[in-house]
């Protein structure tokens, strides 16, 4: 084995845009998104997979990008929080519901809360409070006390059910 870590060429479609990048073992997906692609909406929090602020979607499933190793993803479809708004710049229905119900305060946990809510509502259109709590469990919020997050997810569920 070489003494020096070897770089790996990866091909990612990030929010619909194809990128070819050289990444190094030890670089997390979060490192590359923030440093190489300047997508700083993916937040750097605990760095240990607990807080959820770095949550993105990899191939349609939510994941903590501080743990996912960039070099283990030769090809991937990645969606970050920057990819949630529509092409016209309007907030997506889930973002709008979080805005309306004060689901954001400082906004640090927003990537994790939004992606967790989106994944929950794609499978469970009318979730109970217990299902909401369980779905959001991978993200920590230190502002809202969680009540407004629950309200935001309920409002998002109503909005998505009403828009075909």
């Amino acid at each position: 084995m070489d003494d020096l870590a070897q770089s790996v060429l990866v091909q990612w479609r990030v929010n619909g845009v194809l990128h070819e990048l050289d990444v190094l073992p030890g670089q997390s997906l979060m490192d590359v998104l923030r440093d190489a692609l300047r997508l700083t909406g993916t937040h750097m929090g605990c760095m240990t997979g607990h807080c959820g602020a770095c949550t993105v979607m990899i191939d349609g499933r939510i994941a903590k990008s501080c743990i996912a190793q960039a070099a283990t993803l030769p090809r991937a479809e990645i969606r970050t929080i920057e990819g949630l708004m529509g092409p016209d710049g309007r907030l997506s229905p889930v973002q709008q519901a979080f805005w309306d119900e004060a689901g954001f305060q400082c906004g640090y946990c927003a990537p994790g809360m939004l992606f967790s809510a989106i994944e929950l509502l794609s499978e469970t259109p009318d979730p109970t409070d217990a299902e909401i709590d369980s779905a959001l469990a991978g993200s920590l919020c230190r502002c809202t006390g969680y009540q407004s997050l629950r309200r935001a997810v309920r409002a998002a569920a109503r909005a998505l059910r009403e828009t075909p």
Binding site: G49, G52, T55, R61, I62, A63, K64, I67, A68, G112, S116, E119, S134, A135, A137, G138, S139
Partner: peptide, 9 residues
């Protein structure tokens, strides 16, 4: 186990 993101990995 853990949370949804952890259970996916």
């Amino acid at each position: 186990i853990g949370d949804p993101q952890v259970r996916r990995r």
